[in-house]
């Protein structure tokens, strides 16, 4: 049709990208095993002499995924330190953040044909911050359920306050379980948004989490957040 001049922006460090995909695997694993923990199905168990410890196994997978997930967070943090592109989180202290959010929201409500170009639009930024908050809740509540097997352990000492703060460990289970569902709802929306952005703007959104780059036609409004321009 027409040639549009585009510019490549380097956004995501390899650390973030590896983290992202490990996170994807972990969260899906955690969610599925988590549901089985609440509502076990008599999968392999037939009699007590069977050595297939179904629940034990499912829980172990859950905990393994949980620990891997926590471990790869180091990559995310490292990326945050070394690469500006990894820092695109909401800047709520900057006034334009709100007007821009409204603008983007209007676009997604299909009331505006397009929104200003961003490396990462403020709404997406909010959703990722939200996801991290939810994941943080899962980690807190998860460990608060995991460690008290030995109350006197370091983990038990560090995390037992969560159960008290929530009004009892039953609430911890509920919060952990409810938030899990909200994470899944995020995931559906997120994957759609990524695909949609790609389709709508054609800026290489989807591939960015593999390649680390986005290709934009217009100069994004938040470009100064990854490049210092005099």
């Amino acid at each position: 049709m027409k040639e549009v001049p585009r510019r490549i922006y380097y956004l995501f460090s390899p650390f973030l990208r590896i983290f992202h995909w490990v996170m994807v695997a972990c969260i899906l694993t955690l969610f599925v095993t988590g549901l089985f923990i609440t509502k076990p199905v008599g999968l392999l168990a037939t009699d007590p002499t069977s050595t297939m410890l179904t629940m034990d196994m499912i829980r172990s997978i859950h905990f393994l995924a949980a620990f891997i997930f926590c471990a790869v967070f180091i990559l995310r943090i490292y990326g945050f330190i070394v690469n500006k592109g990894d820092r695109l989180f909401p800047r709520v202290w900057e006034g334009h953040f709100y007007s821009e959010t409204i603008e983007v929201a209007l676009h997604y409500m299909l009331l505006k044909p397009s929104h200003a170009p961003f490396l990462r639009n403020p709404l997406a930024r909010m959703s990722y911050a939200g996801l991290y908050a939810m994941v943080f809740v899962e980690i807190l509540t998860g460990f608060a359920m995991y460690f008290p097997t030995n109350m006197n352990s370091i983990g038990g000492t560090i995390f037992s306050w969560v159960n008290i703060a929530l009004g009892g460990e039953f609430m911890t289970h509920l919060v952990h379980h409810y938030v899990a569902w909200f994470i899944i709802v995020f995931v559906i929306g997120h994957v759609y948004m990524v695909v949609r952005a790609d389709f709508m703007e054609g800026e290489g959104e989807a591939s960015s989490m593999i390649s680390g780059i986005k290709i934009l036609e217009h100069v994004p409004k938040d470009v100064n957040e990854i490049e210092s321009r005099e």
């Binding site: 549901l35 609440t38 299909l110 409810y178 899990a180 569902w181 709802v185 559906i188 759609y192 949609r196």
Partner: peptide
């Protein structure tokens, strides 16, 4: 319970996403 509600929510989100996708097109 939340599993039913959550599954409903997920399906609703899915449907919403498809509709939104169509409208976006």
């Amino acid at each position: 319970d939340i599993d039913k509600i959550g599954a409903g929510l997920a399906v609703a989100t899915g449907v919403g996403v498809v509709a939104h996708g169509a409208l976006s097109t």
